[in-house]
């Protein structure tokens, strides 16, 4: 497994176009909690090629959340390297990380995390707003995305006027608006009933078929089973990396 990843890194750094959406190499993350050092990640290597659909799984405390924060550029590793595309994000400052988040990552959260005072269309627009990249064309794109996730009729509704499934669709549309390197989904079905869960997973499948890269963090086996590849974490290390389907 480790051999394979190292080869991948070599392949990427030797140039030749964007092959990996995300690439982690020897990533460690430690932090001090009440005087005790907690080792959340203890040297993780993980390469996510373009178009992959990876489910990161593991029990609580396995390092899932830390991994998610690192992939989402919300946190920096204690040591090791993380590439998003061609850029090593471990050396970037806060403003640069914000720019990366705005342009390369599509977040989908368990609790939807829409902004309450904004309408559906405005919520979808937020990443573009922070990219400083809003125009009439981008507004058109937002409308198209809303239609794609089946909310073309509710553009001016507020999050409180929508069901959980609908809100999560808005969040997915929002995650796509900046044409990200990968969609980072954190338990996207955790708050939904089985029917809407199926709908959302179908939507993710559909996106994967279109060639989108998806990284999904979950602890539910049946959700993980829909992906192309399952990475299991245990005590801050990759326990297993199983490919279910080809990319």
């Amino acid at each position: 497994m480790n051999e394979l990843n190292k080869n991948n890194v070599a392949e990427q750094t030797s140039g030749g176009g964007l092959v990996f959406a995300a690439n982690l190499s020897g990533v460690k993350r430690e932090y001090v909690l009440k005087g005790e050092t907690v080792y959340a990640l203890r040297g993780v290597d993980l390469a996510v090629p373009k178009g992959d659909y990876v489910a990161i799984m593991g029990a609580s405390g396995s390092g899932k959340s830390t991994m998610l924060n690192l992939l989402g550029c919300l946190d920096r590793p204690t040591s090791g390297k993380i590439w998003l595309g061609d850029d090593d994000i471990t050396t970037l400052n806060d403003n640069k990380l914000s720019e990366i988040r705005a342009s390369r990552i599509g977040f989908v959260f368990q609790s939807y995390n829409l902004i309450q005072q904004l309408t559906v269309i405005e919520n979808i627009e937020v990443p573009l707003f922070y990219q400083g990249n809003m125009s009439l064309r981008s507004r058109k794109r937002c409308v198209e995305l809303a239609k794609m996730v089946g909310l073309g009729e509710r553009l001016n509704h507020r999050p409180t006027q929508l069901s959980g499934g609908q809100q999560q669709r808005v969040a997915i549309a929002r995650s796509l608006v900046n044409d990200p390197y990968f969609i980072l989904a954190d338990e996207p079905t955790g708050n939904l009933d089985s029917k809407t869960t199926a709908e959302i997973l179908d939507l993710l499948d559909h996106l994967s078929e279109q060639g989108r890269t998806i990284i999904l963090v979950t602890h539910e086996d049946d959700v993980g089973a829909r992906s192309k590849r399952i990475v299991r974490l245990r005590d801050g290390l990759v326990e297993s990396d199983t490919r279910l389907r080809p990319i």
Binding site: G72, L74, D94, N95, S98, E99, R101, A102, S103, F107, N113, L114, I115, Q116, V126, P127, Y130, Q131, R174, N178
Partner: peptide, 16 residues
């Protein structure tokens, strides 16, 4: 606080 977190995750800089 939560809204601030969301905005930051979606790419808002401190200045924003």
């Amino acid at each position: 606080t939560r809204e601030i977190g969301i905005r930051r995750a979606l790419g808002a800089k401190r200045g924003d």
